[in-house]
Amino acid sequence: MNLTLKIWRQPHTRAKGKFITYRLDDISPNCSFLEMLDILNEQLIGNDEEPVAFDHDCREGICGMCSLYINGRPHGPDDAITTCQLHMRKFRDGATIVIEPWRAKPFPVIKDLIVDRTAFDRIIQEGGYISVHTGGAPDANSILISKEHADLSMDAAACIGCGACVAACKNASAMLFVSAKVSQFALLPQGKVEANDRVKKMVAMMDELGFGNCTNTYACEAECPKLISRSNIARMNREFICAKVS
């Protein structure tokens, strides 16, 4: 495959960035998107140029590190997928691919396509945990949990915190992420103890960091690689109302 890449290049956070166009020839359609960028970087290094900085880690769709806004969609032109799982066969030969970093006020660009997603960690620090004493594991049946709730909680816990929801949302809202984290605990008895405090604090931090408001457009759900459902947002709203009135 022969490709034209338009890639956002920005040396550091405060520098002014711009798009640079690269030509890349003879790429196998079986290459993953990140491998394609690796090939580009090898060529750049060979030419004594600065390679393109982009995030990645596991490269197997489980860590949430890879990002990239590709041709108008976070993680590119496929559903329920991370960028590391995207393959070049999803593009046509001769395609022009525009690659941008996640754009949101709380996600400043560190370099090129890498953004700082510490904002998510700060939200988690506000209550995305349960406080338990360490010690021997309690008997599995001592706290009964319905299968339905266990499943819903596990579905919410599938969130890998990649930030595609924020990147896709026209308001750069983090509601899907925060609601997944609130839900995974709120659905279980162990999480209920701190539920009220958790939802209030996490929402307050989300607002403080400058994420936008949800306008129920659901681009987040459409782009989530882990298929986190919008029903988590409704649950968080419920949790929030209950926490406020109780």
Partner: peptide
């Protein structure tokens, strides 16, 4: 305000 720098390609989700 939460997206001061806009995308070059508008969202296609």
């Amino acid at each position: 305000l939460s997206r001061p720098v806009r995308y070059r390609i508008s969202n296609r989700s």
